[in-house]
Amino acid sequence: MATALAVVRLRSLFAVVMLAGIYSLVTAGIFLTLDAVDVAFTEAAVGAGIATMLMLGTLALTGHKQTPPRHSPVLPLMVVTITGVVLLWGTHDMPRFGDPDAPIHRHVAPRYIEESPTEIGLPNMVTSVLASYRGFDTLGEVVVVFTAGVGVLSLLGFRRRRPPRQDSESSKEESDG
């Protein structure tokens, strides 16, 4: 929470990227305490690791300082506040956390828990659901990842590689500056 507030306040984008990485790491810790180890894994590796790196790469391409906004922050703040209140109000109807009678625990989850050891035979139920019961969804996710790669390549592309000597010079200048 404190990290999120700091991210909003800070103007130095480098610090913002670092704090966002820390935020991801803390989130991974929260997932871990909720026993969602698979999600925690992904959050730690993607959110704290690779996303931070890509942000840093973007910073290297653009600038390190945020330009001060020209419009007043009142309207965006109002929109955000209203959306937040509506979202909080929406959670009011939701069943309590961990409630065994919640609809999500009575739909297909019991079948997964009871049948997957005999149907799939894997100790890790998350893998059974992800790869077998929901195999089609996962295929869609992989295609999404692939499409993202294709999209970035078509937008950025590869610049022709410079000779290595020139590259080491430019990197030295960067570390000096």
Binding site: G57, T58, L61, T127, S128, S132, V142, V145, F158
Partner: peptide
């Protein structure tokens, strides 16, 4: 499951590296 997880792993690793290299090659 072993085969499709292998497919997922190959795609994800390759795409992540592609994106990273694409950013870095423009630096």
């Amino acid at each position: 499951i072993l085969l499709i997880e292998l497919g997922v792993g190959i795609t994800v690793a390759a795409v992540m590296l592609l994106i990273f290299f694409a950013f870095m090659s423009r630096e």
